[in-house]
Simulated scan of single mutants.
Amino acid sequence: MARPAYRFNTRPGRVFDVINVVILVAVGVIALIPFLYVLAGSFATEAEIATRPFFIWPETWSLRAYDAILTSPAFLRALVTTILVTAVGTAVQLLLTASMAYPLSKQNLPGRRLILSLVVFTMVFSGGMIPTFLVVKDLGLLNSYWALVLPMAINPFSLIIIKNFFQQLPNELEESAMIDGANEMRTLWSVILPLSKPVLATFALFYAVGIWNDFMSPLLYLTDNSMWTLQMFLRQVTSATDLSVLEDTPGEVPPAEGIKFAVIIVATLPILLFYPFLQKHFAKGMLIGSVKG
């Protein structure tokens, strides 16, 4: 007996779609309004910020705040540091995660169940802040940029998803590579990873956003002000009253509130610009590898 054809273009279905769209648009607008306020405040004058409690379009446009931070040696140093740490950290995390996920995707790996059990165990229980700090200290990583990368080099959730993705790839691909004389590392690099671009791009975005926005790791492991990342600089600027962190920015002293807004925008903008390049892989990468165990 043939299954009945389901009709989605019904009146209740259309009402649900309209309500769904209205709710999603409202939530999107609510989430966007604070960002627009910060963006407008970064281009406004000090007097307008002080007199207008809320606005999304400044009456008088000013670039003094951006001129101040973009000519500040401390800000430029923190920006370059964050970019390099994010790039290196993302590459290291993807490399280590894929290198561990590939052998775990093999059913005949000795001790595979025990290793996977330990991975799942770390998703539920962790050492916590103080034990992690003691480990980083004993390894001599304090005041080192590696302290921002290595403690979270392999994320258990990402590892399991990437492992499941590798398991779904046809075994014939690896067998063909082996016949051609490729070893395991060559097979991983030349066959498996090129076919895994959606899932790798997705977790590259996750890793990059996590490292870029990481505040606790620099706060715990970096005591040298010259090694500050952008989040530490942002914290210092938003909590300071004299803006001495700008290191004697040349020119007239810019509006204090405008500088805070401008730093927030500059700290947020790179991730927003980075996302569209990975958007085509994002939805596919989140679904692939999340079904089979």
Rank of each mutant, 00 (worst) to 15 (best):
G128D: 11
G128E: 08
G128N: 09
G128H: 03
M129E: 12
M129T: 13
I130D: 05
I130K: 05
P131K: 06
P131E: 15
P131G: 03
L134A: 09
V136K: 01
V136F: 00
V136Q: 04
K137G: 05
D138K: 12
D138Y: 09
L139V: 07
L141D: 01
L141F: 02
N143A: 05
S144C: 05
Y145N: 12
Y145F: 12
W146H: 07
A147L: 00
A147M: 02
L148F: 02
L148Y: 01
V149E: 07
P151C: 02
M152Q: 13
M152E: 14
M152T: 15
M152K: 14
A153S: 14
I154D: 03
N155F: 01
F157T: 04
F157A: 09
F157D: 07
F157V: 13
F157H: 07
L159Q: 08
I160A: 02
I161G: 05
I162L: 09
I162C: 02
K163A: 10
K163Q: 15
F165D: 07
F165A: 14
F166S: 00
Q167H: 08
L169Y: 02
P170H: 03
P170S: 07
P170W: 00
P170E: 11
N171M: 14
N171R: 15
L173R: 11
L173F: 11
E174R: 14
E174L: 13
E174V: 12
E174D: 15
S176D: 12
S176I: 09
S176N: 12
A177P: 01
M178K: 14
I179Y: 07
I179L: 15
D180P: 02
D180Y: 11
D180F: 10
E184Y: 14
M185L: 14
R186F: 04
R186M: 13
T187R: 11
T187Q: 09
L188A: 04
W189L: 14
S190F: 11
V191F: 06
L193V: 08
L193C: 06
P194M: 08
P194K: 10
S196C: 04
K197L: 10
K197A: 12
K197C: 01
K197Q: 12
P198M: 08
V199D: 00
V199C: 04
L200M: 13
A201T: 05
A201F: 00
A201I: 00
T202L: 06
T202V: 06
T202W: 01
F203E: 04
A204S: 15
A204T: 04
A204Y: 03
L205N: 11
F206K: 07
Y207W: 10
V209M: 13
V209Y: 11
G210M: 03
G210P: 00
I211D: 10
I211C: 09
W212T: 02
N213K: 07
